[in-house]
Design a protein around this nucleic acid. Structure first.
Length: 262
DNA sequence: GTAATTGTTCATGT
DNA sequence: CACATGAACAATTA
């Protein structure tokens, strides 16, 4: 479940489970999960090394090896990670399996193979090469306003543009727009600077709330859209208005037609 | 069988 | 160049 809050959970999970453990074996179980790197070079890069730290930028997770290289995880739609000791607990769709000296394991699991595993000698270089925008929790208000004012078209695709700011996907874009009381198809040029300013604050508020609740949808505040974001869902503010949906760039958007006017 | 799914990238058209 | 759209990638569920 990998937008920014979910990836942050994976980071915390990795930090508390696999740091500084000696890697004794690496198995690429499905080569299609690799991007810009061969199974052999990934294996030789991290075999005999330790992961000594992690860094998250948007939906990307970087694992620092003490060999000097960084492993890159992107989770696509179905990526997840799992640390386990008993081989029978290995996830079904494990694509890369790492074994540690103490005979515990770490799996990168990805059912639909939209995610990927890669590597880079420099995170900064990778980020700039791929033109990945600043993390949604790090971008300054000034930069956010400056960038968004250069854009046109509908607001939602812009919020989800990983080149402008990174970490927001379909689900959290809907939540941020609901909390901002902005219709997902509202045009950039018709939104006031005051609204953009409000939206900037709500980006951090929504994402931090999600992280505080461990990205568990059911734990989100009662005024949040996400737990109601389903067919026949109702507006969380009054339990009356039927949520509506519309397709934007091929993705389903949920919104309240009363609280989010176009 | 049809449509849908928390993502990204490419091709094409405006 | 900015934007919209559809397809592709692949697996599973309603």
């Amino acid at each position: 479940m990998p937008e920014l809050p979910e990836v942050e959970m994976y980071k915390q999970y990795i930090d508390s489970n696999i740091l500084n453990k000696l890697i004794t074996d690496v198995r690429v179980k499905h080569p299609k999960i690799l991007r810009d790197i061969s199974a052999d070079s990934l294996t030789s890069m991290i075999s005999g090394s330790k992961i000594i730290g992690t860094k998250r930028i948007g939906k990307y997770l970087f694992l620092q090896s003490d060999s000097g290289e960084w492993i890159i995880f992107h989770f696509g739609m179905t990526g997840t990670v799992k640390y386990f000791r008993d081989k029978k607990d290995e996830p079904i769709h494990t694509r890369v399996l790492i074994q540690f000296k103490n005979d515990s394991f770490f799996a990168f699991d990805c059912q639909r193979l939209f995610g990927f595993v890669s590597a880079t000698p420099s995170v900064e270089e990778y980020i700039s090469q791929k033109n990945i925008g600043p993390d949604a929790l790090v971008i300054s208000k000034q930069e956010f306003l400056k960038k968004i004012n250069k854009r046109s078209g509908k607001i939602k695709p812009v919020l989800m543009d990983q080149h402008l700011l990174s970490g927001i996907g379909n689900i959290y874009a809907d939540e941020i727009l609901f909390q901002s009381r902005i219709h997902p198809e509202h045009k950039i040029c018709d939104i006031s600077q005051h609204k953009f300013s409000l939206m900037y604050s709500l980006i951090a508020e929504v994402l931090n709330t999600a992280i505080d609740n461990k990205a568990q949808f059911t734990a989100y505040p009662s005024h949040y859209l996400i737990p109601h974001r389903m067919k026949d869902g109702v507006c969380p503010l009054n339990q009356i208005h039927q949520l509506k949906t519309t397709k934007i760039n091929g993705r389903t958007s949920y919104f309240c037609p009363i609280h989010q006017r176009k």
